[in-house]
Amino acid sequence: MRKEFLAAGRGGQGILLLGHVLGHAVAKYTKFYVTVTESYDAETRGGDSKIDFIIADKPEELDYFKVRNSDVALFMYPEQLVKYERLVKDNAIVFIDNYFIKEVRANRKWLIKEAPYTQIAEEKIGTHVVANMIALGHIIKVTKLVPVEAIIKSIKEVVRKKWIYIDIKAFQKGLTL
């Protein structure tokens, strides 16, 4: 088994943290092996931000570091959707933040799951910065990639203290979408 997951958005949307929380959960609390590489621009806000996430049940299946035919993808911003859609295969499950991405023009057969993650974060949790955790909740609910408990433990271990409670709340909100 070898599955690829790509998440991309703008710097500041929490893409890298999402990858880190998910990777930590997979590595520590499942039997699966994982490779995560990050790419980001020099700006802390507004630049390109992407994670290449590969999960497998045998370490030798984690050959190449980068995603080429993603099974699952998350796009949080239109520019990155245009830039990276070629890395997502047909029939992939694609999560879209439709607060920013109004229209998916990619001419591909994707199973699209969309929700206004950023808007939900702002309205239900009180800050847009936890949109990433809402998206993560949605992804876990649909794909069942990792047990919910593992993600919650991972958030507690990875995220800075003052954000733990609010991130878990956002993640749980995502599970209800």
Partner: peptide, 10 residues
């Protein structure tokens, strides 16, 4: 540089 910053299960 690629290996250096690749996160993996160890």
């Amino acid at each position: 540089a690629v290996l250096a910053h690749a996160w993996e299960k160890v």
